[in-house]
Amino acid sequence: MTTVNQTRGGDVIELQEAGYGYDGSALLSGMSLTLAPGSFHFLTGPSGAGKTTFLKLLYAELTATSGRVHIFGQDPRQLSRDEVSDMRRRIGVVHQDCQFLDHLSMRENVALPLTVARRDVSAEASNLDELLSWVGLAQQARSLPPELSGGERQRAALARAVITSPEIVLADEPTGNVDWEMSQKLLNLLVQLNKMGKTIVIATHDLNLIRAAKAQVATRVLRIVGGSIQAAGADL
């Protein structure tokens, strides 16, 4: 069992001996971890180590098969589907494959969290347009997702994740398909959100991105190795 603790008031996410497996084999096991509000985390590890699975546990797309995961103090296994949906509105997620609705424009896709929360999108149009401009997608606002490049889609996915100003942002390789300049820009957005008190968790292979973040904000680097999570060394 590996334990990485960080205590700063009420934790937004807490894992207690949590694990996940299927067909009798454990992909992740014995993870104990707390994520405090306003903390900034990087998640690293080799491909296939379980970084994406770990992130999915944090927004309840998967539920732990052993131990416990508490999100905002609640175990998703004890919640109804509606309660899980409500909980997800407090979490912004950038999927590795972005996941858009291909029949909606990028602007509508970015506004989707507002739409499903029945918030008046027109009332928040200026924020939406500002955000789209900030991620460099003002010109592509009316384009459909298949018409965008990989990098543009990732920027749009990040914009969608933060449009509702969620308490936690989980990003799975958010800079995988963008150039260094845009990576820096996206990182700056996440750093700004973190400075506003949001909890950030980024799964990445990009050590330069981690170093750039460390230069701006206090971060913690976690590494998944052999199905367990551990604090990364000081070499990062």
């Binding site: 927004y59 797309e61 589907r81 509606d82 409500d86 997800r88 029945r118």
Partner: peptide, 12 residues
């Protein structure tokens, strides 16, 4: 799946 990801309830 996408709608659930962004917090849509089943009723919605």
């Amino acid at each position: 799946s996408v709608l659930r990801l962004v917090g849509a309830r089943d009723r919605y």
